[in-house]
């Protein structure tokens, strides 16, 4: 498994020039806007969703069949992808913090807009990145990268359509049983925690679905 994680990390390492360009762009944009949130979160979130890029590259170079010739079970191959994502969570958080420090001490010394709120935002966005991964992974394992975009889009559009039709007949904001102020307060207080719990549950479901999809996959 370690070899596969290293393989994906090497792929990310090979994209370092692009990541630096993205950081410079996001930094310039942040300076223009007077808010450094974008500069802090852009590269870490890109890194966190890079798991999807590794699937794409494997598909582009048709290396899936070759991977299955390694002395690894299919379960180990799927597990390595999820472990890689966890490693990326660590790396992206570290890089996010380094950017934070870089801005605070070098780029804009004493900038008072940097605070724990911004780090919380970084974590929120990273966890959202993990959520995207956990939705994408099983679909990619099942359908491959090319098709999975269409599959995901069709699911999203379908859900939006159903939601829109239902909203014509049911206005949830007028349902007496729901105290919307309480809901908003809850999100403000426990948003990060709730999102983390949601992502953990989603990741477990995603892992199980990925295993099931990959178990039956032929290359």
């Amino acid at each position: 498994m370690k070899g596969l994680i290293i393989k994906d990390l090497l792929f990310i390492k090979n994209t370092w020039k692009n990541l630096i360009l993205i950081f410079i762009g996001s930094l310039l944009l942040s300076i223009a806007l007077g808010n450094y949130l974008l500069a802090i979160v852009c590269v870490p979130v890109m890194l966190l969703t890079s798991g999807i890029n590794t699937f794409q590259t494997d598909e582009f170079y048709n290396s899936d069949a070759y991977t299955l010739s390694y002395p690894l079970s299919r379960k180990e191959i799927v597990t390595s992808k999820f472990l890689f994502t966890l490693v990326m969570l660590g790396i992206s958080t570290y890089i996010g913090c380094m950017i934070y420090v870089l801005i605070y001490f070098i780029i804009h010394p004493g900038y008072n807009g940097l605070n724990t709120y911004m780090l919380r935002e970084l974590l929120m966005l990273e966890i959202s990145g993990l959520l995207v991964d956990s939705i994408f992974y099983p679909i990619i394992y099942k359908y491959g990268c090319e098709k999975s975009r269409f599959v995901l889009m069709s699911i999203i559009i379908l859900l939006l359509g159903i939601g829109s039709i239902l909203s014509v007949y049911i206005n949830v904001f007028k349902i007496d049983a729901i105290d919307w102020n309480a809901v908003i307060n809850f999100i403000e207080q426990y948003g990060l925690f709730s999102l983390t719990v949601l992502v953990v549950i989603m990741s477990i479901i995603s892992y199980i679905l990925s295993l099931l999809a990959y178990r039956h996959k032929d290359y």
Binding site: K7, F11, D58, Y61, N62, A65, Y66, S69, P71, Y219
Partner: peptide
């Protein structure tokens, strides 16, 4: 058991940016 098998595929190898 694949530890003892070496493979060459016609159309599949590693990521070619390596």
């Amino acid at each position: 058991l694949k530890e003892d098998i070496g493979c060459v595929f016609d159309d599949s190898f590693m990521n070619q940016t390596f």
